[in-house]
């Protein structure tokens, strides 16, 4: 498969994987640590959405499905499919527990992307495409415009019933 097309497809898959799993696991509902709350309130002050801000704060402060997706892709690239993803899942779990997080989002994200990488390898997508794709996916959330991305994350949280009750 053409490398550029592969990276674009991998970016879309990675974006859906980590945003949907993180939202499902309740990242927009409440900040896990004080740092996540500070980030959420900061984004709200700049015109963003509070639930989306909590989501962004939480993925900065502990390895959630975003880190799980990236580390599983790196693991698959470095030591093979699917072992790399399984090793990444266990490392993300330990990282979660160190960061005051129960670890469901990170390990679920790592395991689902491992299954996706294994399945899409049959149509020519490689782990390195997923590494590049995940970098682009996380850039759209954390690197371009926080107020806009937080509003989008807030809308997704509302649709999935995970919107924050904190005012």
């Amino acid at each position: 498969m053409n490398e550029i097309i592969g990276i674009i497809i991998a970016a879309v898959i990675s974006w859906l994987n980590f945003v949907l799993i993180d939202t499902w696991m309740g990242l927009p509902e409440a900040p896990g640590v004080k740092g996540a709350e500070v980030i959420g309130r900061g984004i709200q002050k700049r015109g963003g959405d509070l639930a989306g801000g909590f989501f962004q704060g939480n993925i900065v402060c502990s390895p959630d499905a975003s880190a799980g997706t990236l580390l599983a892709a790196i693991g698959c690239f470095a030591i093979g499919i699917p072992e790399g993803g399984f090793v990444a899942a266990i490392l993300v779990f330990f990282g979660n527990r160190i960061c005051a997080d129960p670890g469901y989002a990170g390990t679920t994200g790592a395991l689902t992307i491992t299954v996706i990488i294994a399945a899409t390898s049959y149509i020519g997508l490689t782990p390195e495409m997923f590494i590049a794709g995940m970098m682009i996916a996380i850039l759209t959330i954390q690197g371009l415009h926080h107020p806009s991305s937080s509003k989008l994350l807030g809308k997704i949280a509302k649709k999935m019933g995970r919107y924050t009750e904190i005012k």
Binding site: I79, G80, P82, E83, G84, F86, V87, A89, I90, L91, F93, G103, Y104, T107, L111
Partner: peptide, 17 residues
């Protein structure tokens, strides 16, 4: 189921590799 099964999966992958 969580985390025992996930840990078993990860430890087996480590030992395998």
């Amino acid at each position: 189921v969580f985390p025992t099964a996930v840990l078993a999966l990860g430890f087996t992958a480590m030992v395998s590799k």
